[in-house]
Nucleic acid binder design. Structure first.
Lengths: 115, 115
DNA sequence: CTAGGACTTGAACTAATGGTGAAGTCAATG
DNA sequence: CATTGACTTCACCATTAGTTCAAGTCCTAG
């Protein structure tokens, strides 16, 4: 099944080789092994990593992303992408709401701190 | 000038005593010293800490917050609060824009990863 | 004037986060 | 079959934001 090496996935996904191995350790991607114990990835590994990078920009940790990607099977169908998209969107919007709430508190800052 | 002990500032600001000392080390607040080398804070110290906590919610690090509070003199005037408010608002809005940009990229996720 | 709670320092420690680096092993090519 | 680049593991690094500890000092109320 797996045909891509660490280096190939790294190049395709734009992260370092050590990051690819890190992501495998963390369960974001999975790999088959050759007789000589080398990793071989499915072609969707790079894709999963690209999704992971976007999720990091939303503020998710690698742990969060593991859970997120757990619901994404190999060779995902449109519905799988949709679910993932929905979860990420909800998370980003939640963070935007938190920032707005902080802004509101800042707005009342002078009153909070009248000296 | 300074009349409040570490413990009093901690109580007023809602953080621990060790955090108060930490914030002083980091330059978020300043303290006078008694003859016996104990810290004595101005009453605005607790206020500055409350501002710092809001800034943390916006995503600033303690280092960022030191720079932010550096422009806030003791006994700040309305214009000082305004400047601080503007900087925090700008930062929060920048982060909101980043999240929106990430959302846009998520929207194109299926195309990015067509397998 | 003394008891004990609050304070002092500095260093070590915690815990999460996101990797990197060194030393050694594999595999494909000339 | 040897070279050389890619691969392996495991330990370690750096940052962030504090907490904890020990050993000692201060200060204030009774």
């Amino acid at each position: 099944m797996g045909t891509l090496t660490v280096g190939e996935v790294a190049r395709e996904s734009g992260v370092s080789g050590s990051a690819v191995r890190f992501y495998e350790r963390q369960g974001l991607i999975t790999a088959a092994r050759t007789g000589g114990n080398q990793r071989r990835f499915d072609p969707d590994a790079a894709c999963r990593i690209r999704v992971a990078r976007v999720a990091q920009r939303v503020g998710l940790t690698v742990n969060d992303i593991r859970d997120l990607l757990a619901v994404l099977p190999p060779n995902p169908e449109p519905a799988d992408w949709q679910g993932l998209h929905d979860r990420l969107t909800a998370e980003a919007e939640r963070r935007i709401r938190e920032l707005h709430a902080a802004l509101d508190d800042i707005g009342s800052g002078r009153r909070l701190c009248d000296l």
